[in-house]
Structure formats: structure tokens, C-alpha cells
């Protein structure tokens, strides 16, 4: 949770600095509603679902977690959807320094981003904030975090 606090603070700074000139809706990793769930929740829980998505998209993870547990307890969203949201939050709060050490020793590894989370790195890309790293380095960091899970799972 220490990481989360840090992240929320950093997000505030980012929010003040940037105003989202990226095209988050066309990015391949943008948080999407899940079609199968979207059908199921439209009747009773669609607003909870959409609010959770919005909180996650803004990086308000503590608030999102709270809403997920409330909505799940009230039966507004399914257990599966709650789990998926929580999983996505854990991916977005993964820091670049959390991936396996061997991957961190790739020749062009942007080690200055080690303490930054996937969410923060994506925001830097989307707001064209290249003060810490180049666009190529930010993209590499995103791919390393998003892709590392497949290596560990098999």
C-alpha cells in the first residue's frame, strides 16, 4: 500500500502537469469494458462497472478497490469481474523494478524508470512527458511489464 500512496501522489503531480493529449482509446492496452461482462451487468450494475473503469483509468486505485468490494458485496458486479478489475490494478501498480532481474539487464533497459509503475509510465507516454525517458524507453518499459507475466506463467 506504500506504493499505492506514492502512486496517488505522483498521479496528482502528473494530472497537474499533463492534460492527456494521447489517444488512450486507441491504445492497445487501454482498459476496455469486457464484452461478455458488459452484457451481463448492463441491467443492474453497469454504472458501478463504468465507475470502476473510470477510477482505474484515472489511477485512483484505492477508490477503485473500495468500489469494487462494495459493488461486489452488493451483487452489482460478478465475482469474476471484481477479480479482473483487481488483477488489472495489480498490473498497473507493478513497478518496472519488479520484473525479473535478467530482463532488467537488457542492453537498453531504462533503469531510471525502475521505481515507476506501469500506470505512471503509460501516463508519461500519453502526456508526451519525455523528461525522464525517451518515447522508445517508455514503450520498452510498458512492454516489459505487460509481457513478463507470460514468461513466468509457462
Amino acid at each position: 500500500m506504500r506504493r499505492l500512496g506514492f502512486l496517488l501522489g505522483a498521479y496528482l503531480v502528473l494530472a497537474l502537469l499533463g492534460c492527456g493529449h494521447g489517444e488512450p482509446h486507441t491504445r492497445p492496452h487501454a482498459v476496455e469494458p469486457w464484452p461478455s461482462e458488459a452484457e451481463g451487468v448492463r441491467v443492474k450494475g453497469s454504472s458501478a462497472h463504468v465507475r470502476i473503469l473510470a477510477l482505474i483509468a484515472r489511477g485512483e486505485f484505492a477508490e477503485a478497490q473500495l468500489l469494487i468490494s462494495e459493488a461486489s458485496a452488493a451483487g452489482l458486479i460478478s465475482k469474476e469481474l471484481a477479480t479482473r478489475h483487481l488483477h488489472r490494478i495489480s498490473v498497473l501498480t507493478t513497478r518496472l523494478g519488479d520484473i525479473p532481474a535478467t530482463l532488467q539487464r537488457a542492453p537498453d533497459f531504462p533503469s531510471q524508470l525502475k521505481d515507476y509503475t506501469l500506470f505512471q509510465i503509460r501516463r508519461m507516454l500519453e502526456t508526451r512527458d519525455f523528461s525522464l525517458a525517451t518515447s522508445a524507453q517508455l514503450r520498452m518499459a510498458v512492454k516489459l511489464i505487460e509481457d513478463q507475466k507470460r514468461l513466468m506463467e509457462k
Binding site: 525479473p100 535478467t102 530482463l103 539487464r105 537488457a106 514468461l151 513466468m152 509457462k154
Partner: peptide, 20 residues
């Protein structure tokens, strides 16, 4: 299987570039 393992483990005394 070996490639994935080599990529995700740090072998003592082995240079990173050698693993890659």
C-alpha cells in the same frame, strides 16, 4: 522452456548478455 527459464532467472556468476 529453457529459453524462458534463462530469461527469468539470475544465474550467479553469469553475465546478463551471455544469458540473453
Amino acid at each position: 522452456a529453457l529459453a524462458r527459464l534463462v530469461l527469468t532467472t539470475e544465474e550467479p556468476g553469469v553475465d546478463a548478455e551471455a544469458s540473453l
